[in-house]
Write a protein that binds this DNA or RNA. Structure first.
Lengths: 141, 141
DNA sequence: GTCAGTGCAAATTCTTTGCACGTGT
DNA sequence: ACACGTGCAAAGAATTTGCACTGAC
């Protein structure tokens, strides 16, 4: 998914298929919602010598190729995730930092409201909702 | 609003009322959704010599005093806004960067859903919704 | 063989920290 | 007078840029 396409998408633009690019894409798929730093760490576990600079550049490229997107969760740190069949919004817990994925249907009503009342076209994939998750909520009490 | 309270809130904690603190709070009220940098610029227009460091420290303090909050809009830059009677979510346009305020009632349905289905307590004030606003949408066509 | 891609180091940008001086109470 | 606040300079963290070498095609 988007994954096997890498070579094809690159070729169609006259770009090259390289190890760092495959590794970074793989890590984005594996980690889900990871920061550039976390992705770099994950890549480094499987192949030494890939520079953090390259990770930044590759993420930018993959985003341009529509293979990944990013959203700003938690403390402004951008987190990247695969852009596939399953668009999703993010539910971020302020207590434990956990990120849950939220299926689009739950936002359809709101999206529709915004479209009709303001002409605003909501980008569901970038939505980040902050709050306190169930388990942290009960601990607090 | 929270504004005249500054002196009182500070005093009740044994903290001091100073020019930079008044100026920063004023700018947050005036600018709505401004970054530390923008606030610093605004403050500097009215009084020279206030250091950006002080702006950061003051914002942190005002947040602790519950007079302002921040949310992460657009490119990870934190934007501060007054914390008053009117809680609100944010609607951020990817085209023009404009930030609209969204009254809480529009999110009540969603908040209720999340609470019942997942026990997730949504923090409406921190919600940032990205997308394309009406005027940018029509320009695109 | 070419030129895109990469590593490395340095430059930027944003934010935080340490410290001595100034000032509100 | 006391200790909180501030400015200034320097330290950190995150990200970007310049450049020469390497390697995919």
């Amino acid at each position: 998914m988007g994954f096997d396409d890498l070579a094809a998408v690159l070729r169609s633009r006259g770009l090259r298929l390289t190890a760092p690019r495959q590794l970074v894409l793989e890590s984005v798929y594996r980690l889900r919602h990871a920061t550039p730093d976390q992705i770099h760490a994950d890549v480094s576990e499987r192949a030494a010598g890939v520079n953090i600079t390259t990770v930044y550049r590759t993420l930018e490229l993959l985003e341009e190729l529509q293979l990944v997107t990013h959203a700003h969760l938690s403390h402004g740190a951008p987190t990247y995730h695969p852009l596939g069949e399953h668009q999703h919004a993010h539910l971020v817990c302020r207590g434990c930092g956990d990120v849950q994925e939220l299926p689009p249907p739950m936002l359809e009503g709101l999206a529709e409201d915004l479209r009709t009342t303001r002409g605003f076209r909501l980008d569901i994939g970038h939505v980040a909702l902050f709050g306190v998750c169930g388990s942290c909520g009960s601990k607090e009490e």
